[in-house]
Design a protein around this nucleic acid. Structure first.
Lengths: 345, 345
DNA sequence: CTGAAAGCGCTAACAC
DNA sequence: GTGTTAGCGCTTTCAG
């Protein structure tokens, strides 16, 4: 009558049951499961048969409590709804799986408040370490994670000014490279559609990159027609309509990512504008969408899979108590496809 | 010297520390955190300030061990790389979050073995319940989950013959509806590109749906030109090329999902075939991709968000020890867009 | 190489 | 409404 398991809860075998069945101590069973090398083969076989016979598998809570780690790695991405983060997360997950870790993903819907909440949630759910997107967030969050001893890896951004562990690419330089090409083609009247720069260092850096290129070509960076809007195809289309309604519409629209660019492309078609003859459009990311549209999108290729895979390896190392690794900067690549051409003369 | 925390592990405040600081028992602190209503306001305030002052947050393992639940709900989807499951999973996650649960996602890469492995992993990571896609899997897996007392909800499929809890739609009837329209338009020479039917009840049902419609129209179901290939744009394109190389190429290609259809569309363009004049193409799912391509894809709309949201509610109810709910069948809807027309006469 | 035993931090009876 | 206390099931020192 000391039992307080509810009737529905199954009474699962415990380590002690296995130990009894195999005629060894619980310590030995534990060792068989966690560091088999430390146990004699004969004993091990006996224990493992007992495990199999009883259908035993370890209790997660007990293990987490005693071992002080869960094997869970958390990741918070802005959204799961489009492909921007999907490929990287998939690779991240596959790589984690190889190290016996499990991924716990949450999404923030691009909201700093939700993100902060999710970070606390993941830590409360036992995440041993966290993968985050971008550096920009309340310093209190970093303090919290440090206090809890949860290692963090920032991805999608490379900023040597930030000391913390990170793996990403230079958003600013990458976008500047693309903008250089645009200017080289002769465009001077340039529109840009970006995500909101506040709280989004990737977006901010990409805008800065475009302005860098303008400056290099003696164009006033302030002349950039910039519209900020949340990432979505519909918003890209809407922003495009606004740009093309300007007194002197741009001859090229540089988009902060491929999703916005596809929206812009859709709107151009709808407005009867020939791309790239009447207006050029560029994207950023090189997700699958970029090659599916017609004409295919000129964009910046980001090594998403590589980033995800490498992030997993770094993070696993950090959980092991390793020192924080130096920031890693991956290379991006310009992809010239059908949506960019010289302006009409 | 009894301490065995490593130097790197932070020494976090525990429930007992908070209790001491607030001058109450640990039970009271626990109540404040879990069922605040049971504690007097004054006491609660005192406790909560102590919590804040110490920066306390509960230890996950201990809580899971004592409470016998983790608040983690697992989901295993075939892939995160394309949008098929993204929208549903996003909605699922948002809804779980409202109930204070956290989503743990894994992907199986459409492999039954990996899926089985992931199921065991998620259970080992303390998942309180599981969301799976489709009914088809080794019965041993269901037995395992039952033994462990982990409730399962199957989604994406509706099969009254299966007793277990599920929420989905009738893949067979939905696809039959689309095929009826195709036949009505006069098509008789029909090609189909599907995922491998083995181990994939959704794919199998969709194929069966097409055959149902053929039979209804007095066409021999065996005459269907069927190619099975994994879901991807590239595979869709490749399959399309093979179909169009047939001695009598089909006048319409019915695809098992939008991803394959977009690939088929791309190949048609590449082959210089006018869609839908020379060949019609249809998809299934109605993901964003479907409206981005030109012409936009005729497809079957699946209420992904609704399914995700409802799945979360059902699953949360099941964790509470509720009885298994009856299978839920959602409605799909045909979307007629640009890729389907009558065959050339 | 194996066993004994001391916790890990929290929850939930149960008693007051 | 609050306190006492017995576990939850496992890991890991330490002794042998």
């Amino acid at each position: 009558m000391n039992r307080r398991l509810s009737d529905t809860a199954p009474n699962l075998p415990t380590l002690a049951d296995v130990a009894r069945a195999a005629g060894v101590s619980t310590a030995t069973v534990s060792r068989c499961l966690n560091s088999p090398a430390l146990v004699q083969t004969a004993t091990r076989d006996r224990v493992l048969s007992a495990v199999a016979a009883l259908g035993y598998s370890p209790n997660f809570g007990a293990r987490a409590l005693a071992a002080r780690r869960t094997g869970i790695i958390g990741a918070i991405i802005p959204t799961m709804e489009n492909a921007i983060f999907a490929r990287a997360i998939q690779a991240f997950q596959e790589e984690l799986h190889l190290s016996g870790q499990t991924l716990l993903v949450a999404s923030s819907s691009y909201s700093p408040e939700i993100e902060a909440d999710q970070i606390r949630t993941l830590v409360a759910r036992g995440a041993d370490a966290l993968l985050l997107i971008g550096h920009d967030r309340d310093p209190g969050i970093y303090a919290f994670l440090e206090q809890r001893g949860v290692p963090v890896l920032v991805s999608w951004a490379f900023d040597p000014a930030q000391a913390r562990a990170s793996i990403g690419f230079d958003n600013r330089r990458a976008m500047a490279g693309l903008a250089q090409e645009v200017l080289q083609l002769g465009h001077r009247n340039i529109g840009m559609i970006s995500a909101h720069a506040a709280g989004n260092d990737r977006a901010r850096d990409r805008i800065a990159g475009v302005r860098d290129a303008l400056r290099d070509h003696g164009v006033d960076p302030a002349a950039l027609d910039l519209i900020e809007t949340p990432y979505s195809i519909a918003n890209g289309a809407e922003a495009m309509a606004r740009l093309m309604a300007l007194p002197t519409p741009p001859t090229v629209v540089i988009c902060g990512n491929d999703v916005l660019a596809v929206g812009a492309l859709q709107m151009a078609r709808q407005l009867g504008l020939d791309v790239p003859r009447q207006v050029s459009i560029t994207g950023f990311d090189d997700i699958e969408l970029a090659t599916v549209v017609d004409p295919a999108l000129t964009t910046v290729h980001v090594p998403h899979r590589e980033m995800g895979r490498a992030a997993a390896q770094l993070l696993v190392g950090m959980v092991g108590g390793g020192a924080a690794p130096a920031p890693v900067c991956l290379e991006t690549k310009l992809c010239f496809r059908g949506t960019l051409a010289a302006p009409r003369t």
